[in-house]
Design a protein around this nucleic acid. Sequence first.
RNA 1: GCACCCGUAGCUCAGCCGGAUAGAGCAACCGCCUUCUAAGCGGUCGGUCGCAGGUUCGAGUCCUGCCGGGUGCGCCA
Length: 548
Amino acid sequence: MTPAELQAAVRAAVQACVDNGSLSVQVPDVVVVERPKVKEHGDYATNVALTLAKAAAKPPRDVATLLAAELQRADGIDTVEVAGPGFLNVRLAGEALASVVPAVISAGSAFGTNDQASGHSINLEFVSANPTGPIHIGGVRWAAVGDALARLLQASGAKVSREYYFNDHGAQIDRFARSLLAAAQGEPTPEDGYGGEYIHEIAARVLAEHPDALSAVDPQEVFREHGVELMFGEIRQSLHEFGVDFDVYFHENSLHESGAVERAVDRLRNLGRIYEKDGAVWLRTTDLGDDKDRVVIKSDGEPAYISGDLAYYLDKRERGFDRCVIMLGADHSGYVGRLMAMCAAFGDTPGVNLEILIGQLVNLVKDGQPLRMSKRAGTVVSLEDLVDAIGVDAARYALVRSSADSQIDIDLDLWARKSSDNPVFYVQYAATRAASVLRHARDLGVEPGGDLGLLTHPRENELLLALAEFPRVVANAADLREPHRVARYLEEQVAKSAQRFWDDCQVLPKGDEVVLPTAGPRLQLWQATRIVLENGLGLLGVTAPERM
RNA sequence: GCACCCGUAGCUCAGCCGGAUAGAGCAACCGCCUUCUAAGCGGUCGGUCGCAGGUUCGAGUCCUGCCGGGUGCGCCA
């Protein structure tokens, strides 16, 4: 019996009480069935009696007693107790507990998926770092979290497009081009330009490919065009090596060249959201929750940055995405109001058609000291630096295991360690142990199989309960856009229980011992554990090695 | 000044729609290996959940105010 099946059984019990007249309440659509913190409170607990007490006009414990009698009759339930203020504490029968094992094994890589988001077409925009330098640590957080979220949403049945909004238009790109040109001419970095070693490298590569660049009619344009291309190629490559590939790299420039910006502005004008003042074209966003109106077309006739956002959003909606999710760093939190207002201006619903997720900043810590970054000095900590220090798996896991709402410190010494202090190692090690015992079993000719009813050890029960949680952890993490829930679950529930199971429940014979009847069922439990760890780590973009 | 995020054990962080005695890892201390990976496991110690009110049968969780930290508030992109 899975948690979902138990929820259904609890609802059915409420329904039964309503039908037999002992309770007059509306049967709730969803009931909460959770794993109690204290194991004396059973395998699962529900507070449904507490929530229904008021409507039923009965004391919670009386409601609980009525429900307990009904629930007791459901298949797979061993005991139901009324406890505390009116909780129902449920213990499952052994077979019901073990039934998760064949369910996991037969579903395989599909175990944990759900269809709560099926029918939705979700556009996920993240990273979108300007191609004016290597991708730095701020963007990396979203590379890890965004990609994990994409996987979670796909696992929940949604159609997902990962998109990178490629800003190849505007003043920052001009500064980048000027910096390249200056470097190629052996001149110092311009006042407002970009410093750093990479500028010289890119300039040299442009020169190597276009030796006559400096004598071109517009040398800066040559460096702009080819410099952006090279920089962007590097960003794509490092993201690819990080395991993150986008379905669409959307060029801001294309919106300006295709007339999409004008169309978006016209659309808003027809909707009565546009006015003109001081020679500029404004979008009236203050009606829609923003703190000031926004200039869309500047008085010099150039489109302001937001005009690209308007056109891009409209483009996404016209491509059929019903949900657009944009992931931004904390340094962009000031944009939320205007983007939400923009969404409303088009007649859409902020929070539904457009979601904006803000990720707080990441600090890297080395030898107990934060690594300070300076863009001017060129001491930027890039994606490559992070990967060089701790590897892709550790980097992705470290970035994804905390809530994006929290600032995090990543201790490079900790994440490089090969011991259980290191969370990613701990989880991967559990996956490795699963692979190891299965491998040894094959070598010894011991087959998984046999009577799952033999899985009665407390460690086995704990692991079975942990595995059964996976589908709702996935659903919940996807729904809340919080991939860190998957990581925490893998560490605290699956890997933890698996390590304890390993420690207390020997599977294979040692030396000249005989093969015990528990060997087959325990191997199946290890198979299921391996699958959940693989699937869970897979959702985070982290590998589950066969051996360490 | 205004907006958003954060404030939970010495440190790093969880805490799902408000529910039972607030959890985990690290650090400290004490234990457990002749053969499936000790790269591990068990235990002890450790918390006025920033402060003050409020709502509630019940608040770390919701509301208000304050304190502290972070980020942002351009006809920049």
